[in-house]
Amino acid sequence: MKNKKEITVHIVLSLSCLIIAFPILFALLKSTQPPGQVMSARMLPGGYFLANVKNAWLHYNLDLYMLNSLKIALSIMFGKTFLSFFAAFALVFLNFKAKKVVFIFILITLMMPTEMLIIGLFDLISLSPPANLNEFFSWFVNPRNVLLSPVEYGFGWTDKSISVIVPFLASATGVFLFRQHFRNIPGSLLDASIIDGAGPFRFIYHILFPLSRSTVGALFVVQFIYAWNQYLWPRVIIRNDSAQVIQVGLKAIIGNAEGVEWGEVMAGTILSMIPPLIILLLLHDQFMKGVSVSDEK
């Protein structure tokens, strides 16, 4: 009786896995076929995968897209984790006034997705910077300029990767996760290291960081995938094809011409999925642990 039920569950789950994976499996299959077969109903893999990858590489700027995305995603992943680690450390282990205000100030940004801010962010990132400090300060000292009229100067970062990196380096999610994790660390550890005369940096290096590996791992996964999958902001701020990221690159590839070589497009799509999948598989266990912490509250 029990076995019968278990077998049913196995069957249902296997079928679900298959259905969910089907679109990707299909894309993978078609990316191995030569151009003539891709549009046919033929469902047997061919040996054309590498040729498709090579053609996608040559016909579109796939190599540039992938490199740009990799640079951006890794910078955001490391930068965000680093900065939120220290911000959360200050919130949990340091004594200072206005702690609650600072925490709420950070927490509110959870409900400010970049997509909602693109209009305001666009001018700030794209306009050219003031020619010199004098010009900047004569603009800046007048609160009417800074607060009540549209911004006049920006960073001049159009078409640069930095425009897709720097705005994302601070993270409410990261601060929140680390704070939650730090609060669960026994106070006796902190007491012991204070008594032993260890300063905050030694405490971080020898005790806190080793204890935070799974939170760091979980954040790596979340941030890398988040950064890798960014779409709207790079689509708006990066106009130069050679600086574009892979996600928007997919749009460029499809929209390129009437005769889309779907075998090549699918090869490119499959390639674009590999880096986030690698991170997810490598850090799978830490990721699951981190997620269970985060839904505690």
Binding site: L83, A87, F105, T109, V166, A170
Partner: peptide, 11 residues
């Protein structure tokens, strides 16, 4: 660093 980025690029 965190607060500066949040103010400049979000708020």
């Amino acid at each position: 660093p965190t607060l500066l980025i949040l103010i400049l690029f979000l708020y």
